[in-house]
Amino acid sequence: MEMLKVDNVAVSVGEKVVLKNVSISVDRNEVLFLLGPNGAGKSTLLRALVGFPGYNVVSGKIYFEGEDITGVPMETRVAKGLAIAHQIPPKLLGVRVRQLLEALCRRNKCDVHEIANDLGILHLLDREFGKGFSGGELKRVEIATLLAQKPKLALIDEPDSGVDVDSIEIIAKAIKKVIEVSPYRSAIIVTHSALISRYIEPTKVCILMSGTVKICNGKELIEEVFRYGFRELV
């Protein structure tokens, strides 16, 4: 049985239909890379999957652990074990990184210091969430929240964009840990540059372009993307 099944889904944001006829699935032990050029709708898909308000499924169905979650609010989906790492998390005035991680770890029984150490963000714990962070710091803190959530299925949006090589390596290690501690050992990772593939090997790669999934294949698809680019490939 697929752990996550997206069946012929169309998603609108405001008046605009951004995704149409999207069908993908994630099985146990499957790391799905979702590739595509900027503006293809990758982030929209992840947000629609987690049920982020404003990202409306206008047709099709989403199943998680065999249950139809299409109309289920985000709060419930997250409680069921879905979690998203956002591409650009917001700045939270006055909210310290430590405060947020402590709140998550109280609930999910994790160690803030260990997570912060893993992600090299010990020096950011007492800073305001997102304020004055570099691109790499922002990503590392965001992945730290994901690690603290201990999700069943992580939806990770562009972990490799706008970050230096050192940060990517740290982030990749943390993502591997997220996957290791999840019961299904699966994840969906969105990337447009596929840099993260140097550190994490996908089991399946899908290419999303112009709001729809054009092709899904094995990890060799990444090499083809690097060689031919998205447009040539599809």
Partner: peptide
């Protein structure tokens, strides 16, 4: 900001 509230809900808070 709604976006900030939704961000925190996406992290598992009510």
């Amino acid at each position: 900001a709604e976006d900030e509230i939704n961000y925190l809900i996406s992290k598992g808070f009510t």
